[in-house]
């Protein structure tokens, strides 16, 4: 009697499980509808971003590309010289590297890639630092934002390329958007970390002398956290550079596009050259931003 009862309940449980798992929960449809809703509702935002902002970036990139390469290279070398503490390794590398890219007829692409990285990093930083500050001040904010950052960093880029295109069409703007998603987390995390690391005594000192929250932030916490925040900015810039190939899949012009087309046509040589150019740009930007940190810390 007992035994058959148990058998019965077990059976019915299994059938209901099967029913449950047999029917897919409509997550995909839900997301589709959600994206559609966003596009329609926030049209007033996406449209001008797509058009006006897109034009602005492209014009800027074209302006850069139209400048004589020799002047741009000279400026970069001088900048590298002064930022690296008047040593020669970085300026020499900059000179040789940029001349190589110019020689390989990739100069215009380089300017577009540089613009993409510059704009994307800039947006990441001006959004990321305040968010990081918010996180450091409120444990609730930290608890909410942390998983979002994890999500942004681990979600495969291709997944948000699709809504990026839906929102912003193709070109530089969705590239900036994709790069923003992927590259913002480090600067947020490092800002949060940097401020939370400020020693308790220094915070107490600033409170004890009657500093307001704002004074404490600008006179004590941010200066103390500066080195850490700069390390975060450096990572953000590097990550946004690593997005240029992916951004080219949704029409962003630049070196990434050369890599992509070489890939599609199985041309090892041109692919390697374009890839090498990205690496050169990466090294120059990395060393320059790192030195920016050391110089003033």
């Amino acid at each position: 009697m007992m035994l058959s009862m148990t058998k019965f309940t077990l059976l019915s449980f299994i059938t209901s499980m099967e029913e449950f798992f047999g029917n897919t929960i409509p997550v995909a449809e839900g997301v589709d509808r959600f994206v559609e809703w966003i596009t329609e509702t926030f049209n007033w935002f996406f449209d001008p971003v797509k058009n006006d902002f897109g034009n602005l970036i492209e014009n800027f990139a074209e302006l850069l590309a139209s400048l004589p390469a020799s002047i741009v290279i000279l400026l970069a070398v001088v900048l590298a010289y002064f930022l690296s503490g008047r040593r020669f390794a970085l300026p020499v590398f900059t000179l040789v590297g940029l001349l190589f890219i110019y020689n390989q007829q990739l100069w215009e692409q380089l300017m577009f890639t540089f613009t993409l990285v510059l704009v994307a990093s800039f947006i990441s930083v001006i959004v990321g630092i305040p968010v990081g500050i918010l996180m450091s001040k409120s444990s609730l904010a930290e608890a909410i934002i942390k998983p979002i950052l994890d999500f942004m960093q681990t979600m495969p880029a291709f997944v948000y390329l699709i809504p990026a295109v839906v929102f912003f069409g193709i070109g530089m703007v969705p590239g900036v958007f994709a790069s923003f998603i992927f590259a913002t987390p480090p600067v947020v995390r490092f800002t949060n970390l940097g401020i939370r690391q400020v020693s308790k005594e220094l915070v107490e000192a600033s409170d004890a002398f009657g500093a307001t929250g704002k004074q404490k932030l600008f006179k004590v916490e941010l200066p103390m956290a500066k080195t850490t925040i700069m390390a975060g900015i450096n990572q953000t810039v590097m990550l946004s550079l690593s997005m240029v190939v992916i951004a080219s899949m949704i029409g962003a012009p630049g070196l990434g596009r050369d890599v992509l087309s070489a890939l599609q046509r199985a041309q090892e040589g041109p692919g390697f050259v374009a890839g090498l150019s990205i690496v050169i740009l990466a090294i120059i930007i990395d060393r320059i931003t790192q030195n920016l940190n050391k110089g003033k810390a």
């Binding site: 020693s199 005594e201 220094l202 107490e204 000192a205 004890a208 002398f209 006179k219 004590v220 200066p223 103390m224």
Partner: peptide
């Protein structure tokens, strides 16, 4: 009131 700290707490 002002405070002086054990580990100085200078900026």
């Amino acid at each position: 009131m002002s405070m002086v700290f054990q580990k100085f707490a200078l900026f």
